[in-house]
Nucleic acid binder design. Structure first.
Length: 690
DNA sequence: ATCGCCGAGACT
DNA sequence: AGTCTCGGCGAT
């Protein structure tokens, strides 16, 4: 951003001055009248001299924005755009019909890209804030500059998007809302109450930012993880046992074939070697339609129960599905409630009311064993968890490995004692909601208020089985994992049909920017979004598609009673095309997500360039198609063809990633850690020659 | 939103 | 064999 010369920086999302790193007391904090950002008075290069100046103070960012577009000295030689911008700002300033707040709001609308508001001045191509205009090729700079959260000035951790099209960190946004603010910090448009109380992560942005970070730091640690959505297409024949289930296409309590070759009591991630179907393993972020599908991929096997585990052995996985109101989700860590204590007599599977105390027995005890031993526990989140910002919108999502650091009992919200568990994330891959490009690092335990009233507190003694290795910089088994007492569900099956099914499910590999553009497809037209809008429920659509979807509908329904008299108009419910949220209020003034739009445009430019390069390179290898048919089993070949320049590195890193976390393997047979990679790269090399 | 059914799968 | 389980469906 534009504050390097004088090095003026505001306070971050935690109210900590970004220059002196201290948290200034209120009397040393100055709030900008325009963007309402707090600044540390002592660290400002130019301070207001009077109280009146202080109350009307505008921060260097806001005042510089105007002057940097057209400083007075260069005013005459300024561009047409700057001229019109200055003229527009002056027009706003001299408009006596506007209050100071309105003026500030309009100024900000103008500077943040205009939007489709009435005062907006468009530069013709809608690129209001294209700060990378200097170098069209410098896409990365553009991306990393475009998405900065206005509070902390960093690329958003867990980005959320306001209906006015502005992006913030979830943490900063929650802090802002927590201060009682109900208007956007950038344009002062009202934040809908639902968004304020239940902000949703904009997952498309997560992908974009993660990629930006990866390329920015030039680590290029391979393409972003594909996020699969496994549908019912692979339901096995044997899945349904009742006529009714067949009819509805969904069994009530059926189970289908398990696709992975891990035993039911397998701990830790499900690795590529246990996934003969796809050869990828279960990746963080993988989402299934329901618990049955989730079960088929081994992430969480019980299809009703929230805990998979055995009291004398340990717990392998848990599901967060909102069944217990005591649960508390903070993403990287959460407080989980044990099972039991509810009257499930009759045919009930769930019951919200608790009628007796929970004890550390059965699966609750299994969790305690995992806590004591420090086993890795897989975690899936269900869309049914409505109170958590980290839950998926739809389906069931694998969120990676957590460890249970402590467990205890306390009186639950309903008065009866519940077993409680502190889960802390420790996965080698980043969580689906974070734009971080790397996995977890060991983090200090959060302080838990309720521990004061806790009984039966259990903490781990000794070293955990699953822990962080500083040398290898990843989480791995420090002690050998518990030996399985069961057989792998699919043992031996892979030899029979492994290759054929792999063939049928072969995924086509795409370049990084192509894959990202796919992330930015509009769910309505299935094309890359133009003028993207982000709804309060965090779904992204083309502006035109979303408006067309509700074309002809009015926001209010006039209700007449047999023509006799007109009743009061009723609000017309307009459901988001992707979820049941009512977005009618949002549709009255939807604002284009400018940052997202500029990223999409940049990616499109990049893809076009890559394609042009690929076309020029194709002439030298005219046997691509043939090659493809023969060598079906080696998906990497395609990577070679598509991303000629960098694919070698990517393949290697991909392999390393597949291997990481597989320390069981390492310990046993790892004489030369590169052997497998070498073999594979030779395969790739040979097939490339075909 | 709530209710009754269905009857998987693991544990006891 | 009985018990338990943070599902999912169609009907109301």
């Amino acid at each position: 951003m534009a504050h390097d010369s004088n090095r003026n920086l505001p306070c971050d999302g935690d109210n900590r001055c970004m220059i002196c790193k201290l948290t200034p007391p209120p009397e040393e904090t100055l709030t900008c009248k325009t963007c309402v950002t707090p600044w540390h008075l002592n660290c400002l290069s130019v301070r207001p001299q009077t109280l009146a100046e202080a109350t009307q103070w505008e921060c260097p960012d806001c005042s510089n924005l105007i002057s940097s577009h057209a400083p007075p000295s260069t005013f005459t030689s300024g561009s047409e755009q700057s001229d019109s911008l200055i003229a527009a700002i002056r027009a706003i300033e001299s408009d006596d019909s506007l209050s100071d707040q309105d003026k500030a709001k309009r100024r900000q609308q103008l500077l943040s890209g205009g939007g489709s508001g009435d005062t907006a001045i468009d530069d013709g191509n809608g690129n209001g804030n294209d700060i990378g205009s200097g170098g069209d090729n410098d896409v990365l700079k553009l991306i990393s500059g475009s998405f900065n959260c206005s509070f902390c000035m960093q690329l958003p951790e867990r980005p959320v998007t306001t209906p006015c099209g502005h992006n913030f960190c979830l943490k900063c946004f929650e802090k802002w809302v927590g201060q009682g603010k109900r208007t956007c910090a950038i344009c002062r448009t009202a934040i809908p109450p639902k968004m304020a109380s239940q902000p949703r992560i904009n997952s498309s942005l997560v992908t974009a930012i993660r990629m930006a970070k990866m390329t920015k730091s030039n680590t290029s640690s391979g393409p972003p993880k594909p996020y699969y959505s496994v549908s019912n297409q692979n339901r096995p024949d044997k899945a349904y046992t009742t006529e009714r289930a067949k009819y509805s296409g969904k069994a009530n309590a059926c189970s289908g074939k398990i696709f992975v070759t891990v035993p039911p009591d397998h701990f830790g991630p499900i690795l590529a070697e246990n996934d003969p179907e796809r050869g990828t393993g279960v990746l963080v972020g993988e989402t299934w339609e329901d618990r049955m599908d989730c079960r088929q991929w081994g992430a969480h096997l019980p299809h009703v129960s929230g805990i998979a585990g055995q009291s004398d052995y340990g717990a392998q996985s848990v599901a967060l599905s909102g069944g217990y109101e005591d649960d508390e989700d903070h993403g990287e860590w959460f407080l989980y409630t044990g099972s039991g204590g509810r009257d499930l007599s009759g045919n009930k599977r769930t019951n919200k009311t608790q009628s007796f105390d929970q004890k550390f027995e059965k699966s609750n005890e299994a969790l305690r064993v995992s806590c004591r031993k420090g086993y890795p526990v897989r975690v899936v989140r269900s869309h049914k968890e409505k109170r958590s910002a980290y839950a998926p919108e739809k389906g069931v999502r694998y969120d990676g490995i957590y460890r249970i650091e402590k467990c205890w009992r306390k009186p639950g919200i309903q008065g009866f004692k519940v077993c409680r568990y502190l889960f802390v994330r420790c996965d080698n891959d980043p969580a689906p909601w974070t734009s971080d490009e790397h996995g977890d690092r060991p983090r200090p335990l959060p302080s838990i208020e309720e521990l004061k009233n806790a009984t039966d507190v259990t903490e781990r003694k000794g070293t955990p089985s699953w822990d962080y290795d500083e040398q290898k910089a990843c989480w791995l088994w420090k002690k050998p994992p518990p030996e399985s007492r069961k057989h792998a569900i699919n043992e031996g099956v892979e030899d029979g049909n492994g290759s054929s099914s792999r063939k049928s499910r072969r995924k086509t590999q795409m370049s990084v920017s192509e894959r990202l553009l796919k992330e930015f497809c509009c769910p309505i037209c299935h094309k890359v979004m133009t003028q993207p809008l982000t709804t309060p429920c965090a779904h992204n659509f083309c502006k035109s598609c979303l408006q067309d979807a509700f074309a002809g509908q009015t926001f209010m329904k006039a209700r007449t009673c047999e023509g006799r008299r007109t009743l009061r108009a009723k609000k017309n419910i307009m459901k988001c095309p992707s979820c049941p949220h009512d977005i009618s209020e949002y549709l009255q003034n939807p604002q284009v997500n400018r940052e997202l739009m500029s990223v999409i445009e940049s990616l499109q430019r990049q893809t076009k360039e890559t394609e042009e390069n690929a076309v020029s390179g194709e002439e030298t290898s005219n046997s691509d198609q043939k090659n493809d048919d023969i060598n079906d089993e080696n998906p990497e070949t395609e990577v070679m063809n598509l991303e000629a320049g960098e694919s070698g590195i990517e393949v290697m890193q991909d392999l390393k990633r597949k291997k990481s976390g597989d320390q069981k393997n390492d310990d046993v047979k790892d004489e030369n850690p590169e052997t497998e990679a070498n073999n594979m790269s030779m395969e790739v090399g040979e097939s490339g020659k075909l």
